[in-house]
Amino acid sequence: MSSIAGSSRIAFRKPSALPGFLPTFAFTIFYLSTVVLIPLAALVIRPWSLGFDGFIAAVTTPRVLAALELSFGAAATAAIINTVFGFIVAWVLVRYRFPFKRLIDALVDLPFALPTAVAGIALATLYSQKGWIGGALAPWDIKIAYTPLGVIVALTFIGLPFVVRTLQPVLADMGPQAEEAAATLGATRLQTFVRVVLPALTPALLTGAAMAFARAVGEYGSVIFIAGNLPMVSEIAPLLIVIKLEQFDYAGAAAVGLTMLAASFLILLALNALQGYLSTRR
């Protein structure tokens, strides 16, 4: 039947008895191209309409640099916070039994499912001077909303599930044997944890942290309500892109966008390489 048609494409794909490759593959490529690739091409090409120097000038203004610093810095901080607490959450969910465990497990997915704007206004209200948490901290003169601290809080909110959900299956699969072996060899619980458990989990931790970081860098809806959005102080890079678009500075907006993409890509590449290095010996 149609399997004979496959033989003319042997160099590209192995022949298969199953039908339907051409239509599905063609549709997939078509969809991907129109929806993703061509528009992305626009992003890659547009900044260069400013010329190379123009591009560099557009992304190195103090305002742009401050915004990039805030977006990447806050994302990194949030990723670190989430790595620590996400680890604890994953640990207790996998290894211990306690009341309301099901509830906590379900709640971990909330940032995945909750629309970012909803999270945004909720966090802004919660941490404002009159909010439940913001109000409680006011007497100590600690301001969270409308400061970079607020940005970190919002990015922590959205990044948590990445760490926990990446770690949970790995922890669950680990099994007690390595730890039992360590116990019979005389190690205390702490030694076992530091020398045996943690190193085994490091690749998963890195992956989770990287994913949380990547998501946080580009986050918009959860952050703009709580951020304050003062240029040079609490303005995140995505907001800068929106502002430039509103000013019809398409090339400038594209330049900032492309820079963000390139930087994230490089960081993720580095993290991936690190993780690959750690995994080759396992």
Partner: peptide, 10 residues
């Protein structure tokens, strides 16, 4: 152990 339980990262 039957499945060795060696520390794979060491």
């Amino acid at each position: 152990f039957q499945h060795y339980a060696l520390f794979r990262h060491m």
